[in-house]
């Protein structure tokens, strides 16, 4: 019987392979890029909410550095972009300042800033998404949640980065007010996690490179980098974002992400 089975398999295998191969051939680079983005989003569905203590280390080209401390609360929103609340602890003069963001896939995000000294909630014109976040190399739009609809995609190639096989995919922002003409992301084929993203400015020149380190898995499913560094290729400045501790499904709800919650954020 054995030889027969082998024969069967050896007959079928090339057929199957050719099927798979032709399928890949039929898929355009755009379709494959979109499929990768969808899979990346799908694998990260259902995380619920998170809370984390974060540090941002801002470095100048001359090696001076300063630390920002903040707490970040996030809420997954199905059928729309996620909600985020960031409360600043350091530097001390902005302690208690809180930033509320409702991301949307296609519409501009809704954003508010709470200024504790004045007890005032100020709306932010969110079209200005390309502006720097707290003097860092991260722009406001880099802090927004990843939504499939935000970009047009093109699969470029497979590449090995740090020993892992990656998809290299080009993202072109749909929003014409984005600060970027395109982004190129390296996404690992095993878990669809971004490891490196190149940001190109509106003139098409390389502006920034984001590198993610120390991915950790939560709830046996969701991967989060413990460290991410944004390096500005044009100025030599960089910002390192460090996650000190992160907890999932802490019971946050919509009411923790409204303007009232901003005012009592501490």
């Amino acid at each position: 019987m054995k030889p027969n089975r082998l024969t069967l398999r050896s007959l079928l295998l090339p057929v199957l392979l050719s099927l798979v191969f032709s399928n890949v051939q039929a898929q355009t680079a755009e379709e494959k890029g979109l499929a990768i983005a969808k899979e990346r989003k799908a694998r990260d569905r259902g995380w619920g909410d998170t809370q984390a203590d974060m540090s941002m280390i801002l470095r100048t080209a001359h090696g001076q550095e300063t630390e920002r401390k903040m707490r970040v609360k996030s809420l997954e929103v199905m059928e729309d972009g996620d909600k985020g609340l960031t409360i600043f602890d350091q530097p001390r003069d902005v302690k208690g300042t809180a930033f509320l963001n409702f991301s949307h896939p296609l519409e501009p995000d809704d954003q508010w800033m709470y200024l504790p000294a004045l007890k005032r909630v100020k709306r932010i014109a969110s079209r200005n998404k390309s502006g720097p976040f707290m003097g860092s190399e991260f722009a406001f739009e880099d802090m927004s949640s990843f939504e499939v609809e935000k970009y047009r995609y093109r699969y470029l190639r497979d590449e090995t980065l740090d020993g892992q096989t990656m998809f290299v995919v080009e993202h072109v922002p749909v929003d014409k007010y984005s600060g970027y003409s395109k982004m190129v992301a390296w996404v690992d084929q095993a878990h669809y996690r971004p490891f490196k993203i190149e940001y190109y400015d509106r003139k098409g020149d390389l502006l920034k490179v984001l590198t993610m380190y120390d991915y950790r898995q939560y709830l046996d499913k969701y991967w989060r980098p413990q460290r991410a560094e944004m390096y500005n290729e044009q100025t030599g400045k960089s910002t390192e974002m460090i996650t000190h501790n992160m907890t999932f499904r802490t019971g946050l709800s919509d009411s923790d992400f409204d303007k009232n919650s901003l005012k009592r954020a501490r």
């Binding site: 501009p108 809704d110 709306r123 014109a125 079209r127 200005n128």
Partner: peptide, 9 residues
């Protein structure tokens, strides 16, 4: 009243 109109408030 505050209205957001692109880069205008």
């Amino acid at each position: 009243v505050l209205a957001v109109m692109g880069s205008w408030l």
